[in-house]
Write a protein that binds this DNA or RNA. Structure first.
Length: 813
DNA sequence: CAGCTACGACTTTTT
DNA sequence: GTCGTAGCTG
């Protein structure tokens, strides 16, 4: 956007004339141009937080205070990471791939792939999502005869995840009672199972890479030296382990004080901390200030989003919380419309009121439908609202629900793909073994599991131990996988996925199913996703990292390197204008992640885009939690009742109540121009009609900003929509979640033609020699120049992808 | 072994 | 009320 004069690196450090810094307010400018040192930025809702973060990075680069390789910016969601990356590359003609910008888990993944040996993992380790983790837990429960009345698998999963979030291994958990002891024992068994199968769950990604840094001094020192500028987004939502992880990267702790070389900038808002239930610890903010001896705190209190009636409501509400760092949003905008409050007789009437107001907003006030949001505390509330919208023919879209990579048919396909990479992945084995049905029932699987347990091997290896027809069926399945692995050897990702879909029988199965058309469409979409993953996304952001230095030494220069800064260790420095990097590279062997492993990682770490269809002209429905970070011209908050909002489960203790209040604060601050609140006297909940008092939060809002609206008509549900549209015009029935954007996100351009005359002289079919792996046969070549990689089959080590710039391959005559 | 029925849960959720 | 799972029956 801004034409930037990047070449004049002699620009003064505090260049006020820099177009980068134009239009920043005083607070923002101060935050962007903070001198070296640790800082806490309290960024209120709508205060331009993302802009400050990205401009800060751009400014550091532009003024020569940082190189791309020296920057680590971490977020919670892929969406936030993507946005940061996109904005940054719009600001500066810099190759953002050289920077470590990503989610906590994405960056952990990078670390672990690059240092998999030091971390004790196979390079191609697979990542379990929550579904996978739960089925792994269930499997283990069965195997050990765990009483699932006393220890429901869900609870064990929660326990394990909770321990890891606190940074605790089984040995670290304080055992207070017999139940805890049992759980810890189970935790231990679970760990062993994961290690055996070469899989890690989300918590393990964090914990394992934390331990890697903690236990490998030279590695830690290396990264500490490298990342001179660490920036953390949504700091109030970090859990204990994430904070500990950051500390490892920032420096060493001595007597409760951090000794650091670079600077850490934490950006957050304690008033928007709404994830305590999943381990977020607002206290990390205070700890950060103390342990890092933070001298600078900046508050961004200028709000650019809302009219003052809305903002005053938010300020007034949140002032009822104690234990705040203290912040008051202000705006230069006028009061705007009052906040409208509606009391309905029942939930249906509430929904109909919303629909009617929305029609008027669109018809009379020219609001766009996608700029109107209906927020609710719990998902169950959406049904009535959806019905009302549908009946009125108003297009809507519900956020949440299943994402693309979580759909059953996709999970099945992924299970087959994972088995190609790792036959010992029992979670995937279990998912695929009898789907599509091939006569392998629960009984057979039980026999197999017993055999595997007594032989101490994977399910795949145990099939030969199962006798009879059952054994034959199992053998056929394993053989099928092996044939598939054979067939796809050296093929590109698209062909691999296509082969799996066909050979697994998945396509055939869904072709014969009545409702299978959508599923087949999704499976086709998976092929497209694989294709664009390779051609468009360059193997995905999280998978990308160039050579890592295990010993803190500068690495051997790669032959064709240009634009490498010799004063910096050659970690992840990206060649300007080069093709996307080849993926994670093991420095000792030159081994890279295969496109398939990279894709599977991508699928686990990024379950799919939720806002793919956001552009539609449709009213947005979502939970308050899901609305965080978004903004709308008009916002409706329904179900403002005691027991619902604040939720009954959170009302008992003050901590829970304060979190509910923060949740309400988040909801209010989503609105730009109009805010509508409603509550209902009665509501269907869990199949029962319940009576509710109006929420206490109403009493905490400034009376002068509110306008109470009474029902136009008395009685129950007598309201009739009067306008022309009438019935079912929309046909938008809950199209939940999904990848949707078939034409946008995954439009795959023609595959770029292979560059001619490869300098390495390798081609498929010839024999090569590798120092560590010995002699092997080249199966495929991908990429060019520094990014060229070869797939080589070594008789003793299996099939590897090797970066030709790193791996020393000699051609065997 | 697969399909069907009954029963229980049920706040929020990203990686 | 509705979804998902567990257990039973054909």
């Amino acid at each position: 956007m801004f034409p930037l004069d990047l070449l004049s690196s002699s620009a003064p450090v505090a260049a006020p004339a820099s177009p980068l810094l134009a239009d920043l307010n005083e607070e923002q400018l101060a935050a962007v141009t903070l001198p070296a040192g640790h800082a806490l930025i309290l960024a209120g809702a709508g205060s331009g937080k993302t802009r400050v973060l990205t401009t800060r990075i751009a400014w550091l680069l532009q003024t020569g205070q940082a190189t791309p390789a020296g920057i680590l910016a971490v977020t919670f969601t892929n969406k936030a990471a993507k946005e940061m990356t996109a904005r940054l590359s719009a600001m500066l003609p810099v190759n953002v791939r050289g920077m470590w910008i990503g989610t906590f888990h994405g960056l952990c993944n990078r670390l672990l792939r690059a240092h998999h040996q030091a971390a004790g993992l196979p390079q191609a380790f697979q990542i379990l999502d929550m579904q996978d983790q739960l089925s792994a837990v269930k499997r283990l429960c069965k195997q050990h005869g765990v009483d699932d009345e006393r220890f429901p698998p869900k609870q064990l999963q929660y326990f394990i995840a909770g321990c890891k979030e606190e940074g605790q291994r089984p040995g670290d958990v304080a055992v207070k009672d017999p139940d805890t002891r049992k759980k810890v024992e189970f935790y231990q068994l679970y760990e062993e199972q994961c290690q055996r199968e070469g899989v890690v769950d989300f918590g393990e990604l964090m914990l394992r890479s934390f331990e890697l840094l903690r236990d490998q001094p030279h590695l830690r020192a290396h990264y500490q030296r490298r990342f001179q500028h660490i920036l953390v987004d949504e700091f109030q939502d970090t859990n204990r382990l994430q904070y500990a992880w950051l500390k490892q990267l920032a420096g060493d702790e001595v007597g409760g004080q951090m000794r650091t070389q670079g600077s850490v900038i934490a950006v957050g808002d304690d008033d928007q901390s709404i994830y305590a239930f999943r381990g977020a610890r607002v206290g990390n903010m205070a700890d950060f200030v103390r342990e890092f001896d933070v001298q600078r705190q900046i508050k961004l209190e200028q709000n650019y989003r809302s009219f003052s009636n809305i903002l005053d409501s938010a300020n007034a509400l949140i002032s009822h919380n104690s234990r705040r760092l203290g912040k008051n949003l202000r705006t230069t905008q006028g009061p705007g419309e009052p906040v409208r409050v509606y009391e309905a007789h029942n939930d249906l009437a509430e929904a109909q009121w919303m629909v009617e107001e929305i029609r008027q907003l669109v018809k009379n006030d020219g609001f766009e439908r996608q700029q109107i949001a209906i927020l609710y505390r719990s998902n169950a509330q959406s049904r009535v609202i959806e019905t009302a919208l549908f009946n009125a023919g108003v297009a809507y879209r519900v956020y949440g629900g299943l994402r693309f990579f979580e759909r059953a048919e996709i999970k099945h396909a992924l299970a087959y793909l994972r088995l190609l990479e790792n036959p010992h992945d029992n979670t995937s084995f279990m998912r695929a073994v009898n789907f599509p049905p091939r006569g392998i029932g629960a009984r057979t699987v039980e026999v197999l599991q017993d055999a595997a347990r007594s032989a101490g091997c994977s399910l795949s290896d145990a099939v030969t131990a199962v006798p009879g027809k059952a054994g034959a069926n199992l053998g056929a399945f394993v053989a099928k996988i092996e044939v598939l692995r054979e067939q796809t050897q050296g093929k590109n990702l698209r062909l691999i996925i296509e082969a799996v879909l066909e050979e697994s029988g998945l396509l055939e199965h869904y072709r014969n199913e009545k409702e299978g058309a959508d599923r087949i469409e999704n499976l086709q979409e998976l092929v497209n996703a694989g294709e664009s993953f390779v051609t468009q996304e360059g193997f995905g952001r999280d998978a990308v990292a160039l050579p890592l230095d295990e010993h803190g030494q500068a690495l051997r220069q790669s032959p064709v390197s240009q634009g490498i800064d010799p004063t910096q260790p050659m970690l992840d420095q990206v060649l300007p204008g080069s093709q996307p990097a080849a993926g994670i590279i093991d420095i000792d062997t030159g081994e890279t992640l295969s496109p398939l492993v990279a894709f599977l990682t991508h699928a686990a770490l990024e379950a799919g885009d939720n806002q793919a269809q956001a552009g539609q002209d449709a009213v947005q429905l979502m939970t308050v939690h899901a609305s965080k970070g978004l903004e709308f011209d008009a916002v409706f908050i329904g179900g403002m009742e005691e027991g619902l909002f604040p939720h009954e489960n959170a009302m008992s203790d003050s901590g829970g109540l304060e979190e509910e209040r923060r949740l309400m604060y988040v909801a209010i601050t989503r609105a730009r121009k109009r805010l509508y609140l409603s509550h209902s006297q009665t509501r269907m909940l869990h199949g029962q009609t319940r009576f509710h008092m109006k929420s206490r939060f109403f009493d905490e809002l400034p009376e002068e900003a509110l306008k109470w609206i009474t029902p136009k008509q008395q009685g129950f549900g007598t309201f009739t929509p009067q306008s022309s549209g009438g019935y079912g015009g929309g046909g938008y029935g809950g199209s939940r979640g999904g990848f949707g954007a078939k034409t946008e996100t995954f439009a795959s351009p023609p595959v770029p033609p292979q560059k001619a005359a490869p300098s390495h002289g390798l081609r498929a079919g010839i024999a090569v020699f590798h120092n560590k792996f010995g002699e092997g046969k080249v199966l495929a070549i991908e990429g060019t120049g520094d990014d060229a990689r070869a797939q080589v089959n070594f008789p003793r080590h299996g099939t590897k992808w090797l970066a030709l710039a790193i791996a020393k391959l000699t051609i065997v005559d």
